[in-house]
Simulated assay, not measured.
Amino acid sequence: MTDKTNYAARPEGTQPWIPLGGGSKDGYNDGKEATATCFCGDIQLAFPVTKEGIKGTFVCHCTDCRKVSASMFATNFTVHSDDLRYIRGADKVKTYAQSKTIVEGNTMTNYFCPNCGSLLNRISSGTPTLNYVRVGAVDDLRLHDTLLKPEVEQFVDSRAKWLKPVQGVTQAHGMEYWK
């Protein structure tokens, strides 16, 4: 039997069985929108869960994504800024922006929780109407395997040599897939 204390409380009409991670206890997917929450639960975003709402999904091996994620790559999805909304914590969000290591010379602004440090999304000055949201922040883990499965793996020349290419995913040397 599953211990239901390890799953989010469900708002009326939402899908069940969203496993909890960190301090969040109220992530949801109602079939129209789903949530992404920081590790402590202070900041929560909502985004559309339609193919039309998700503009792209990708694994990125660029040196910026490696450094900002403190990992070997980042897994992201892109959503139009008008389709991303804060449920809570907008007043708490901190930003950090820089452009010195971005391949295309654009300024990337990172939006993160000042309490737990979770990076939730990024915006590039080159594509200011798009948000690059971290898949790992999405509360409904089933979306990681379905709607948010990567379409492309980019900056593959920067991929750690011990990592293998993602099977069935377009391999790109830079951002040419999105142009």
Rank of each mutant, 00 (worst) to 15 (best):
D3S: 07
D3V: 06
K4Q: 15
T5A: 07
T5H: 06
Y7L: 08
Y7P: 10
Y7S: 11
A8T: 13
A8M: 05
E12C: 13
G13P: 11
Q15M: 15
P16E: 15
P16F: 13
W17Q: 12
W17L: 13
I18Y: 06
L20H: 00
L20N: 02
G22S: 01
G22Q: 05
G23H: 02
K25W: 04
D26H: 09
D26G: 11
D26V: 06
D30M: 04
G31C: 09
G31F: 02
G31S: 03
E33V: 10
E33R: 02
T35W: 08
T35P: 07
A36S: 09
T37A: 04
C38R: 04
C38S: 00
F39T: 12
C40S: 09
I43G: 11
A46F: 09
A46C: 13
F47S: 00
V49T: 06
E52A: 14
E52K: 09
G56H: 00
T57S: 08
F58A: 01
F58P: 00
V59M: 12
C60L: 01
H61K: 15
C62W: 08
D64Y: 14
D64R: 12
D64C: 14
C65A: 04
R66G: 13
R66Q: 11
R66K: 13
R66W: 05
R66T: 10
M72W: 10
F73C: 00
N76Y: 11
N76H: 08
F77P: 01
F77G: 10
T78N: 04
D82S: 14
D83H: 05
Y86S: 03
Y86L: 00
Y86Q: 05
R88Q: 00
G89C: 02
G89V: 07
A90R: 03
D91I: 14
K94F: 10
A97V: 03
A97Q: 04
T101M: 13
I102Y: 01
E104P: 13
N106R: 12
T107G: 14
T107F: 02
M108V: 14
T109S: 01
N115T: 14
C116A: 05
C116M: 03
S118W: 05
L119T: 09
R122L: 08
R122S: 13
I123E: 02
I123H: 11
S124E: 07
G126M: 01
T127Q: 15
P128M: 12
V133T: 02
V133I: 09
V133M: 10
V135C: 06
V135D: 04
G136S: 05
A137L: 01
V138P: 04
V138T: 03
V138E: 06
D139N: 03
L141Q: 11
L143S: 03
L143W: 03
L143K: 03
L143C: 00
H144F: 06
H144T: 08
K149H: 09
E153N: 07
E153M: 05
Q154I: 12
Q154G: 00
Q154M: 12
F155R: 05
V156W: 06
V156Q: 09
K161W: 08
K161P: 12
P165A: 01
P165M: 02
V166D: 10
V166T: 11
Q171W: 09
A172S: 02
A172T: 06
A172P: 07
A172N: 06
H173G: 15
M175I: 08
M175E: 02
W178F: 14
